[in-house]
Design a protein around this nucleic acid. Structure first.
Length: 104
DNA sequence: CAGATGACCGCAG
DNA sequence: TCTGCGGCCATCT
């Protein structure tokens, strides 16, 4: 092991919880902010194991293409409900809604 | 140790 | 949009 799983998970949760409404973040970005640039997969795994009680807006997390998670049809609706527009190809408009620390 | 798995990443067709 | 290919790395069996 080269990273602390629990610490990494907590970082991921904290970052996801900090995503403002109407914005989206990518797994890779979250992994980087959590201190593990190469562990984008773990970010996804971490989010797949998020306990319900944390009230985490994990629907604001998409992959680098702006695509939503497989087997999770609700995610797109939740994002649209928050004002995030989807392009005609079914991807989030990352050009507009990608979360930068600058524009919280 | 080896192999399989995964809410990933990028490119290509 | 889809599928396929390669890669990354933690986790489980």
């Amino acid at each position: 092991m080269q990273i602390n799983k629990e610490l990494f998970y907590q970082e991921v949760y904290q970052i996801v919880a900090a995503i403002p409404p109407g914005r989206v973040a990518t797994y890779g970005l979250i992994a980087s902010l959590a201190g593990a640039p190469c562990h984008s997969r773990l970010a996804g795994k971490a989010l797949s194991q998020v306990p319900d009680g944390l009230n985490l807006p994990c629907h604001r997390v998409v992959n680098s293409q702006g695509r939503t998670a497989p087997g999770w049809e609700q995610q797109r609706e939740l994002l649209q409900n928050e004002g995030v527009a989807f392009k005609s190809n079914g991807c989030v408009d990352l050009n507009r809604y990608c979360w930068n620390l600058n524009q919280e």
